[in-house]
């Protein structure tokens, strides 16, 4: 883990509402894209989403952070009107998903976790046909498709089938597809899972551009860095509930110290050292491979550790991240 530069997301925070996507017209309650109260999803006995509350403002990038099975995807599917709600209330773009599903979906772009691209069609036809599903007229759509191919950097692949595309290309195509109807709300479920770092950065760049255009983004992810990079505000989900909510910096401030000292000892020594050094930090986390000391003065704490005669194999002082927030809130680390 290394020192992370502050993501550019900070400068976009609470950017201008509305702008070009003037879709929020009739029915939209002032500036709120999605409003959930006591939102619940049950599958038989199992409660996937357990009475969660959140508001997503128009034009912001809102994140759902959590491990697999935390209830993120179920929440996404309810917002996208793909899953009837089991309890509570939900309003999307001022409409009721249970009643106005098609109308809401016509204004949403969905990037599902598995791309669901049409394997029997070419890249271009995937975009074209998706636009047709939204009822866009053919001629207009053809121009639009070329623009989106450019946006997704897939123009050269336009006449190929989808199969031979790399994971990153498929993801970009899926995002371009979600934009074909110029949606005012784009939902992205794990947009960069399984991509290499280069492909992820290219995708993030495309998402920044969208946000700059005023599109509301709803993102689920289990990558901390992604959440910090992209999201203005986020909620941490755990076992179907919201464990915390706020901007990335607020969350770090609220749930973690400013800095973290990471220590590595011989694997069997972490527990013992954790107990010995507990009084040097506000909080200590013992992980299988390392020891985390939460403190506001990292260097001072590290000196204190050394003066106690503890000699870690490796030591590192870093700023706290959302990973630490998550660890604190759920007691589990959020690795893949």
């Amino acid at each position: 883990m290394s020192q992370r530069p502050r993501g550019p997301s900070d400068s976009f925070r609470h950017g201008p509402l509305a702008v070009s996507t003037s879709d929020e017209g009739a029915g939209d309650s002032a500036g709120t894209a999605v409003q959930a109260q006591g939102l619940t999803k049950r599958f038989g006995e199992f409660t996937a989403v357990d009475a969660v509350d959140f508001d997503i403002e128009v034009g912001e990038a809102f994140g759902f952070l959590g491990a697999n099975g935390a209830g993120k995807t179920s929440t996404m599917r309810m917002i996208a009107c793909l899953s009837p709600i089991s309890g509570g209330t939900l309003q999307v773009l001022g409409l009721d998903p249970m009643r106005d599903g098609p109308q809401i979906r016509s204004r949403i772009g969905l990037v599902p976790q598995d791309d669901t691209l049409d394997l029997e069609l070419t890249v271009r036809d995937n975009l074209y046909l998706y636009g047709r599903y939204f009822g866009l007229p053919r001629k207009q759509l053809r121009e639009r498709v070329e623009e989106l191919l450019e946006f997704a950097r897939l123009t050269e692949r336009a006449d190929q089938r989808v199969d031979p595309l790399s994971g990153g290309m498929r993801r970009r195509l899926t995002i371009a597809r979600a934009l074909v109807s110029s949606p005012s709300l784009v939902i992205l479920d794990e947009p960069t899972t399984g991509l290499d770092p280069q492909a992820r950065h290219l995708l993030w760049d495309r998402l920044y551009r969208l946000k700059r255009e005023g599109v509301t983004l709803v993102i689920t992810t289990h990558y901390m860095d992604e959440a910090e990079q992209l999201c203005d505000r986020l909620v941490v989900m755990d076992a179907g509930r919201i464990a915390a909510a706020g901007s990335p910096s607020e969350l770090i401030e609220q749930w973690s110290t400013r800095e973290v000292v990471e220590l590595r000892f011989e694997p069997e020594g972490h527990q013992v050292h954790g107990e010995r050094l507990a009084d040097l930090a506000e909080r200590v986390e013992v992980l299988p491979d390392r020891l985390l000391l939460y403190t506001d003065q990292g260097d001072a704490t590290l000196d204190a550790v050394r003066s106690r005669g503890a000699s870690p194999i490796a030591a590192l002082v870093r700023r706290a991240t959302l990973e630490d927030v998550f660890l604190h809130l759920t007691g589990r680390s959020l690795v893949d």
């Binding site: 070009s20 016509s106 121009e143 639009r144 623009e147 450019e150 934009l179 109807s181 110029s182 255009e213």
Partner: peptide, 18 residues
């Protein structure tokens, strides 16, 4: 990075009335 902007601005499409 490609120089192409987000097409949202260049071609605003209105979704058909519901």
């Amino acid at each position: 990075m490609s120089s192409s902007g987000v097409p949202m601005l260049t071609l605003p499409l209105r979704v058909l009335p519901p």
